[in-house]
Amino acid sequence: MSSIQSPKKGTHSVGVARQYSGTAGRIENCQVGVFAAYASRWGQALIDRQLYLPKSWAGDPARRDSAQVPDEVAFATKPAMACEMIARLLDEGTPCAFVLADAVYGSDHSFRRMLEARGQAYVLAVRSNHTLRFLEDWSLVQTDPGTMIADLPAETWTPLSAGEGAKGPRLYHWARLPLKYQAGQGFSLWFLARRSLRDPGAIAYYFAYAPSDATLEDLAAAAGLRWAIEECFLRAKDDLGLDHCEARSWHGWHRHMSLVMAAAAFLARIGADQRRAAYGKQNETSPKRPAA
């Protein structure tokens, strides 16, 4: 799960408002779309989308009418939209080993609890200052991810790959801590951290809910796959015009995104078929197979 922001200059395009843009790193006039992607060893593709409707739009009948916003669409936070989207995909039988998302979603209690209630594993990013509360010896202890990680001994960190990058494996130091939490049967909740090899101060934090026999390597590999959706955005923007939507209406925005996603899925399928066909084929560096 992730979102993209499309900058706009006017005020008439549906959902446009002054809001935070991760693309620009500041508050600016833009539209925000919430997207779901599916990733596997063969490739990735966007599979669902919905426009975020700010309160200034949701509560303005005149603007809603002008942009043809359906009556049933009400204001919802991005994590609430993600809950509905993921639940719909899971109900439709979409196979899913892990749900992955950035800190906007990982920091939301309701989003995590929805996944846990469904027995769905996840690795969700969380902010370094996210408040954590635990009961220890009948006392409530309050802390945060940054504080917990600062106390870890050096031997706790393990170098592992977060997946293949353009220049080879993306290596980081990883560590995890079990959290005192009543998880579902067969599941455990961990606090996961990823530290840069070059800059020990650059640390990313995650909640990881997974089968109790999941290894640190399993969780690191899952966390590394979150960037697949960013690759989907990049390809859809550069090749297919995802961010070139000029439609002002609710239906126009969703139709544009649907067409772009369909084209991107077609290209992803071609790429996946080529990778499957090439899988296992020998090349000049492959060991020679013994003669029959």
Rank of each mutant, 00 (worst) to 15 (best):
M1C: 02
S3E: 10
I4S: 10
Q5P: 08
S6P: 01
H12E: 15
S13K: 11
S21D: 10
S21I: 01
G25N: 02
G33I: 05
A36H: 06
A39N: 13
R41I: 00
I47C: 08
D48W: 10
Q50L: 12
L53V: 03
P54C: 07
S56W: 07
W57K: 06
G59I: 03
P61V: 05
A62T: 01
A67I: 09
M85N: 13
I86Q: 00
R88C: 07
D91Q: 15
E92W: 01
E92F: 00
A97I: 09
A97R: 15
V99C: 02
Y105T: 08
G106C: 05
G106D: 13
H109S: 04
R118I: 04
G119N: 03
G119I: 08
A121E: 07
Y122E: 09
Y122N: 04
L124V: 11
S128I: 12
N129D: 15
L132W: 13
R133G: 12
E136P: 04
W138P: 05
T143A: 09
T143C: 10
D144S: 07
M148P: 10
P153E: 07
E155H: 15
P159F: 08
L160C: 00
K167R: 04
G168M: 08
P169Q: 14
R176M: 05
Y181W: 11
G186I: 05
L189K: 03
L192A: 11
A193N: 14
A193V: 12
R194N: 02
R198L: 13
I203K: 08
Y206S: 01
D213C: 12
T215G: 03
L219F: 07
A222S: 05
E230G: 07
E231Y: 05
C232M: 13
L234M: 02
R235H: 01
D238Q: 14
D239G: 03
G241K: 13
G241T: 05
A247Y: 06
R248Q: 04
W250F: 05
W253T: 00
M257S: 03
M261C: 06
A263Y: 07
A263G: 07
A268N: 06
A268E: 06
I270Y: 10
I270L: 03
G271F: 14
R276Y: 06
G280E: 09
K288Q: 14
A292W: 11
